[in-house]
Simulated scan of single mutants.
Amino acid sequence: MTDDRGAPDDLNAATIEAVVKGRLGRPLRYLDETPSTNSEALGWAQAGAPEGALVVAGHQTTGRGRWGREWFSPAGTALTFSLVLRPPLDPSSAGLLTAAVGVACAVGIRSSSALRPRLKWPNDVMLDGRKVAGILLESRVEAGRIRAVVAGVGVNVKTLTNAPTDVAERATAIADHVERPPSRALLLADILAGLEDLYRDAATAGFARRVIEEATGLSEVLGRGVMVRLAGGGSLEGRAERLTSRGELEVRTEDALVTVHSGEIERLRTS
């Protein structure tokens, strides 16, 4: 593999299988190019893919983020993958999985590059105030139970070039902060190892406690003033107080302590 800034690394099935050692990441479906790893993984899950099944793309052409946004990802610059999970969790606790994947991404980036990422609730991984990775979880729920969750992750590894202005203003890449960014295969292995370390406790009472403790320690948001755009429309402003045991964000406004189940932080203040 080559880790020089701007040079392509050897991301393929063989290099991935050589470094991914745990249960998560097997079986592997590697694609040189695909419109969306999440779409590929969702179809695979529907067809019966086991927990741990992994879709990795060398290039994702029309990846998507939350609320229908497109993920900007020039060929060879990003690590894009989707993991099939079949968690023993109630659908109302699905936010815990987003937090767990966020923690794993931060830990994986730190392990492979010595950088110190932070988490911006609910699904962004940040470096120096800019987004280096995004997470999109999509679930299939039947009869009130989670049948499958696909955890999609995109990490900007190489410097983004020719990015649209709105992306350039808020995004960053690992290569912008270190001389030699990690290979995408090794970064993937570190992220999956971090997630497996957390996820092995998913069926226990300690899973929520550990995930929230680690996500709290990595939070870019808690203790700061925020403006939150709500998924159902509208917004609120206040101070981000804590993460609940289900991964929700509690915000103290002028009038009340509000639990935000689904939303997006549009603005952060220092206090």
Rank of each mutant, 00 (worst) to 15 (best):
Q46C: 04
L24D: 03
R5K: 07
S183F: 02
E179F: 12
A75F: 13
W71E: 04
L54D: 05
P122C: 08
D176G: 08
E214F: 04
R246P: 00
D255E: 15
L136G: 02
I191F: 03
D10V: 14
E214G: 05
L195G: 05
S82A: 15
Q60R: 03
H59G: 00
L96P: 05
E138M: 09
D90E: 15
A231S: 12
T216W: 01
L85T: 10
R66C: 09
R29S: 02
A143T: 10
T165V: 14
Y30P: 04
T62W: 06
D128H: 04
A49N: 06
K158L: 14
G154E: 03
T2R: 00
T61F: 06
E241V: 15
A104W: 02
E264D: 14
A99D: 05
P91N: 07
E241P: 00
A41G: 01
A94R: 12
P8R: 14
V149C: 06
Y30M: 00
D201M: 04
I135K: 09
E213C: 03
Y199N: 03
L89D: 14
R116W: 11
D201Y: 11
E241D: 13
V84W: 11
T77W: 08
L96K: 11
G223W: 08
L186P: 02
T98W: 05
L115C: 12
P181D: 08
A208K: 03
E33N: 04
V211S: 07
S235Y: 08
A256N: 13
E264Q: 13
A13R: 13
R252K: 14
S139C: 13
L54K: 06
L249N: 08
E266Y: 11
R267K: 14
I265P: 01
V153I: 15
A106K: 03
P27F: 07
T259G: 10
P50M: 12
A99W: 04
T259W: 08
G58N: 03
D255G: 07
G206F: 06
S139A: 15
D32Y: 01
A205M: 06
W71M: 02
D197Q: 08
A208V: 11
A114H: 13
V251S: 01
A100Q: 11
A185R: 00
L186D: 13
V20H: 02
V258S: 01
G58M: 11
V178L: 06
D10H: 10
V132T: 10
V107C: 07
L79R: 08
A202V: 15
A133S: 15
A189I: 06
S112Q: 11
G6L: 08
A106S: 15
D255W: 14
S82L: 12
P27Q: 02
G238W: 00
L186A: 09
A256E: 15
V56S: 02
R246W: 07
V150A: 01
D201I: 02
G217N: 10
T61S: 07
L28W: 00
E142Q: 12
L192A: 09
N38S: 01
E214S: 10
A173S: 15
R116F: 12
V226T: 00
A78T: 09
A240R: 10
D197R: 03
E248A: 14
V178I: 11
G217K: 04
A168H: 06
T159R: 15
F207M: 01
S235Q: 09
P117M: 09
V260F: 07
